[in-house]
Design a protein around this nucleic acid. Sequence first.
DNA 1: GCGCCACGTGAGAGCGCTCTCACGATCTGG
DNA 2: CCAGATCGTGAGAGCGCTCTCACGTGGCGC
Lengths: 349, 349
Amino acid sequence: MAAGETGNGRGVTLDAVARVAGVSRATVSRVVNGNPKVGEEAKRQVERAIERLGYVPNPAARSLVTRRSDSIGVVIPEPPGMLFGDPFFPRLLRGISAELSARNLQLVLLMPQSPAEEPRVERYLTAGHVDGALLVSLHGEDAMPAALAARGIPVVVGGRPPGGEGVSYVDVDNVGGARSAVAHLIRAGRRVIATIGGPPDMSAGIDRLEGYRQGLTGGGLVVEPSLQVAADFTQEGGAEAMRRILAARPDVDAVFAASDLMAAGAMQVLRAADRRVPEDVSIVGFDDSSIAATAEPPLTSVRQPIEEMGREMVRLLLEQASRPGSVPRKVILATQLVRRRSSEGGPKR
Amino acid sequence: MAAGETGNGRGVTLDAVARVAGVSRATVSRVVNGNPKVGEEAKRQVERAIERLGYVPNPAARSLVTRRSDSIGVVIPEPPGMLFGDPFFPRLLRGISAELSARNLQLVLLMPQSPAEEPRVERYLTAGHVDGALLVSLHGEDAMPAALAARGIPVVVGGRPPGGEGVSYVDVDNVGGARSAVAHLIRAGRRVIATIGGPPDMSAGIDRLEGYRQGLTGGGLVVEPSLQVAADFTQEGGAEAMRRILAARPDVDAVFAASDLMAAGAMQVLRAADRRVPEDVSIVGFDDSSIAATAEPPLTSVRQPIEEMGREMVRLLLEQASRPGSVPRKVILATQLVRRRSSEGGPKR
DNA sequence: GCGCCACGTGAGAGCGCTCTCACGATCTGG
DNA sequence: CCAGATCGTGAGAGCGCTCTCACGTGGCGC
């Protein structure tokens, strides 16, 4: 009686509970699902029986009749996940997970490790395993959002989809973040401001470049092609870009890098070229990842609310699922400039 | 006929396929599941019908009868996941995901964000949603592995569980990695080697400290308490520990930090104290995370095969699931020292 | 030439749950 | 005091699939 009384619940069915409680299956089901139309006495009996038998509903059986799976798929293609070296990925997942578990939904993670695996993922998502899907944005045009939407499964994309905008998405304000970074540099007296951009086929790259241009124009400076170099978000790419910039424009006195990793690469090159940061060249990165605080000097960077992005994706998805056929919506979350030493003080002159 | 012929498969049942193909449900089921006992002609007909109708099996219905879910749960408690600031977490997930999808299994991610959520997770795992569970190791004693095992659900832990060893686990060779780091420092002529350890309630902390001691002893040096300071794997913790070490042992000429983040913190403090790295003080970290390469000077570090750890966890889990009641096994994966500038050259003398 | 053995196939019984519907009992209003 | 509404409950019909079992049918050995 001490132990073993409450089994593990596996194999205990609704029917068994009903028998023990002396009621019908329907009544037990009502109790389990919180249906108010149950008498006091019956409810008590059922609860006791459930407790005693350690009953746990069989999810498959339930799902079979309700036609819901109570879980949603999160698709993160391999390369982007790794690119942002830093906690981007875990933080996004964390936000998504938090919002999901608050609603008693489960998270099925799908990581196609190559384009070849995408059909598999798509098949999985459309087979009814999930009630909706969250996709993190991908390079260039991606057919998946549209394909899923066409099959009637609710979809929300994280990060503005580079292709069309026929799908709901959540993104951080890349344009605004970049703009404020540049404005900050101008305010500090910098006048020859270069940018190391991201890949031109990713919206984060495109939008941050756009913000850079707006920042210059807004500050009364002119946009010059010789000050713009695209890279790939990696440290090595950032270093290479910085070399090119130094060669073309030795008079550069500030750099806005579209990622912290690229900023770190740029800083190495500047150091090798005997340019002091921030005295000779000011630097601002993007992401406010852990290397920003670690760098020497600590890197001014644009912080993005990644957890919040995850949460918002879930909210948008559920909203979408609750009324099918509604028009795609987009949500843009504000970014924030975090000032550190790499952009301190005015120019040397 | 051009479009719309193949629907999305939702709502198309086995029965519908059977009718179109002119066979029974059983035969269709056989074809779908690759049962060889089906005639050529029938098989062809069925395949055609499946294609035409866009049939996709209903996972819930299948799961209801097979009593398998074809998915496994991965439990990652919040704090540890974030602690290793760097790609530890995504990389592990990537390894797990790769191995899982090769076997056509799905990954359900559970991130209890506080101990209060653990019962929820446990209930989920035992309700039959998953065929097995992968847990990443946790602080101190954790009841979950035992609880799950008791309820008959296969479990594999990532990282040696600090408590008992009554459960299968996969870990990297923390002891060996730390030992080789210290051996490397000794070989370079260092004699006063301090360590900044991890939390003493985490196996990674314990084992790396043990490896440090073995390294010293193996190199003919003595283990001195004044050279050992425990921290929490964070950069700030590493900095604080370094200050303590400098105060107690100004003669220190090398530091083995149990994480790269702590090594970075230590380097900042050394720089502030006008000690050159590596000339005055050599440093080796652990994890070989992205900040190791980014640091200035680049940080020598112990690399761990994280993806492989994920893959191995899956293998072990499936092995365990295939024969229930088998004894717990453990798998230890080798680590590798990656040399960079932070430990270059001999001592200054 | 007859029994026997594959072999391919179909009928049908569930898997455990939800949900509609019908029913008796109790309550309300005129 | 009775019609009608209200409430709690149970019976039963599936949800879509797998799998056992039994049933032809043809080929083979002796």
